[in-house]
Design a protein around this nucleic acid. Sequence first.
DNA 1: GACGTGATTGTA
DNA 2: ACAATCACGTCC
Length: 227
Amino acid sequence: MADSNDDNLKTSGEPLPREFFERSPELVAPDLLGCLLVSTAHGKIASGIIVETEAYLGSHDPGSHAATKGITARNATMYGPPGTTYVYFTYGNHYMLNLVCEPNGIAGAVLLRALEPVDGIDVMTARRKGRPLAELTNGPGKLAQALGIDSSDNGVALGSGRLQVYDGGHRAGGRVVRTGRVGLSAGHELLLRHHYENDPYVSRGRTGPPSAARRRTRTPGSGGSIE
DNA sequence: GACGTGATTGTA
DNA sequence: ACAATCACGTCC
């Protein structure tokens, strides 16, 4: 290939088997830390070591898309077979990449929130419009953008599409900490976020709950009454 | 700290 | 039909 993009690729370990994902997201989320996520979207390799994850459970998790609602058009893949990807679009701008857990028919997934860039840094930098290395993949929307992920990846089994995850094992000396999940108005108090301590590629997250429910900014017309 | 952006969802 | 919400990122 004319691409210089596929020299010296790092594939630390075997692809994670389906059984790895066929259990609670609460167990899968910390085990994904240290594994390698690889994208081949648009014919370009881009990869990184997973350094931050969040678990999303089923109907009893108020922060989950599967909270009490049952199956909807959006969350259907969360109920699908383990080892597939759940990708959804939010805030009008961002794709979020999750890996589906639990046996087929039971909702559960792990959100990938941050990576340490490994291969294809030039590709990721271009997709991220020249941002510095530490800001290529330090957030869920950022990593999806860096890896070229979009809604066409939703519901696809790992290894059969553009994405794969390889076992990597934990980093030497990388201590894992659990904190509250980021950006939720409900369920943020549950300690379901996992990341390496003092890791430069972890998202900063947000401090505290998102200032109540953010109100849509209204533009009162001139002379209009405000309620 | 505030605003963009558009799909999704509950409510009417 | 409508309007609020939203697992965020960017610039002020």
